[in-house]
Computed example of a mutant assay.
Amino acid sequence: MKIFNKIFYGVMFSLFFTNVFAFNIGIAPTGFYTSLDKNETHEIMVTNNTSESMRVEISSEAASEWENYNIGELIRIYPKSITIKPNGSRSVRFAVRGTKDLPDGEYKTKLVFKEVSGKKPQVMSQTVQNESGEDVAVNFELLTEVHMAAYGLKGKREVKGQLINSEIKKDKNGNVNLIANFSRSGNSGLAVVADIEYLDINKKRVGKQEVKIGITSRNATAKLERNLVEIPPSSKFIRISYKDKDGLKLGSKELSL
């Protein structure tokens, strides 16, 4: 029987949750929002959730759909590589250099925390058959890669937008996903918040919550998707009012669950 060894990176995307535990790595806080008008330093704590020492490499790269507004060159990371003791934590600092060279507006970069294979990586084995019917054992080294966002604002934030459409989609596991498309103009992305009312079969309110949907790109049109949890059991409809974090009303929609 042939044996193949593969490295599998479990990737966790994160945006402004208090903390996140992704496979072997814990991160807190998960990203930051910084001023580009002055120098600022931000600190992120990285935790090793395993019983073995771990090495993590930290870097930045352009975020998807923000390639023209990347601020990776303005961020100094130190240290760029850390070794963490079992169940221990270490801090990483991000020094952001203020600049006068950028136009006013919102910018972004993606921070990457990548676990580097050590002496005893976690291994998952699976046997499969190749085209000739021969058994092949595949060993996967389970490593963690965490992606998070760092946003920067130069000058004054100016943004306008409007809801284009919204819908509910359910996956095969019964998870309820709220999808919304927006038009946008200005020098920043829309930071969308939804005020949600849950309605029963008679359109009577049975629950209410405020949900942070996410931050759009600076493209003229943008799509956001968010999984909805803690839905009251008797809910048959939802009534959603979308707004930007600064209070700009974007539109509303009533949808069936």
Score class of each variant (00 low, 15 high):
223 K>A: 05
50 T>V: 08
24 N>L: 00
48 N>C: 06
226 R>C: 00
73 E>I: 11
231 I>P: 02
253 K>E: 10
46 V>R: 00
75 I>S: 11
54 M>V: 04
67 E>F: 09
75 I>G: 06
92 V>R: 05
226 R>Q: 05
161 G>Y: 03
47 T>H: 09
223 K>I: 03
12 M>K: 12
192 V>S: 01
28 A>L: 12
35 S>G: 09
174 G>N: 08
144 T>M: 00
22 A>E: 04
162 Q>H: 08
165 N>G: 11
113 F>G: 00
218 R>G: 04
144 T>L: 05
6 K>I: 07
65 E>R: 15
166 S>R: 04
170 K>I: 07
44 I>D: 00
35 S>P: 09
200 D>T: 09
162 Q>S: 14
176 V>W: 03
124 M>Y: 14
65 E>D: 13
149 A>L: 13
171 D>W: 11
145 E>W: 08
122 Q>T: 15
179 I>G: 02
150 A>F: 03
84 I>E: 10
51 S>C: 04
237 F>Q: 10
212 K>M: 03
62 A>F: 08
166 S>M: 01
138 V>C: 01
127 T>K: 04
72 G>E: 11
217 S>P: 06
147 H>F: 15
175 N>D: 15
185 S>P: 04
108 K>H: 15
76 R>K: 15
166 S>Q: 07
94 F>P: 05
15 L>F: 13
31 G>Y: 03
249 K>N: 13
254 E>P: 01
220 A>K: 14
120 K>H: 11
32 F>G: 06
140 F>R: 00
235 S>G: 06
167 E>D: 10
184 R>T: 07
240 I>D: 01
198 Y>T: 04
206 V>Y: 02
233 P>W: 03
229 V>N: 07
164 I>K: 10
231 I>Y: 04
